[in-house]
Every structure is written in structure tokens, then in C-alpha cells.
Amino acid sequence: MTFQILFAASAGHIYLGNTIWYLIVFAILLILVKHYAWGPVSDMMEKRRQKVINDLDSAADNRKKAEVLANEREAALKNSRQEATQILSDAKANAEKTSTQIVAEANDNAASIHEKAKADAAQAKADALNEARAQVADISVTIAEKVIAKNLSADDQKDLVDQFIKGLNK
């Protein structure tokens, strides 16, 4: 009785043929759907999943790399700033040193030139004096010779002087 109620829709028939048919149809459907639809789509889903994973990984990598680069750049910038200051101060020091050196040299030069000039002047003066002294001595000697050579009258004296002067003019 229950059995009949159970299979009311089948009108009392139990068709095993249908069961086999359903199984065959379902198996064929499974294979075809897998081959033409489910397979490619789920493959693509898996590929996309992998791609997203890769992209995320590489993005994280890139971010890390960029961070390292930024740090490096900052350090380099700081370094270069320091270097620039160093160079500037070095140059300043150098320039100061050179300028003082130049001034000192110039002073030295000037002093030595001054000294030399002084020495030259003194030499020239001494030379002139010596020469004059020698000439005066010569003149005196000559005059003395002349005086000694003749006992001279005033006229003679005058002549002598004139002669001497003439001799001077010669």
C-alpha cells in the first residue's frame, strides 16, 4: 500500500531503464560540461587567483624596494649636503691660507725691495763720497804739487787756479 502511494506518479511502474538512462545522460553531461565549460572557466579562475597572488607579492616586493631606494636616496642627499659643506669650508680655508700667504709674500717682497733700495742708496752714497774723497784728495795733491813746484805770486796763484779750473774743464 505505502509502496503504491510512493510510486503514485509512476502509475505503478518501476522503470529501471530510466535509471540507467539518467546515469548515462548525467555521465555524458558531466564529461561535456567539464570539457567545454567548467574546465576552461575554473582553469581561468585558478589562473586569475595565481595572478592576483603574484601581483600582490610583486607589489609588496616593489614597495619594499622603493622604500629601500628612498632611504638610500635620503642618505645620499644627506651625505652630499655634508660633502658640499665640507668642500665649501675647505675652499674657504684654502683661500684664506692662500691669501695670507700671498700677502705675506708680498710684504716680504716689498720689505726686501725696500731693503735693497736702501742698501743701494747707501752704497751709491758711499761710492759717491769715496769718489769725491778720492777726487778731493787728488785735487789737493795736485794743488799741493803745484804749490810746492813754484813759489808763487798772487798772480801766479791766480794763474794756477785758472789753469786748474781750465784743467777741470778739460
Binding site: 522503470y15 529501471l16 530510466n18 538512462w21
Partner: peptide, 13 residues
Amino acid sequence: GLTFDLSGIIGST
């Protein structure tokens, strides 16, 4: 030797 019900076969196919 098996019983088949046509409506089920048509519908499922």
C-alpha cells in the same frame, strides 16, 4: 527487457 518511461527520458535528455 527494461521498462522505460518516455516522458522522463525526453525531459532529462
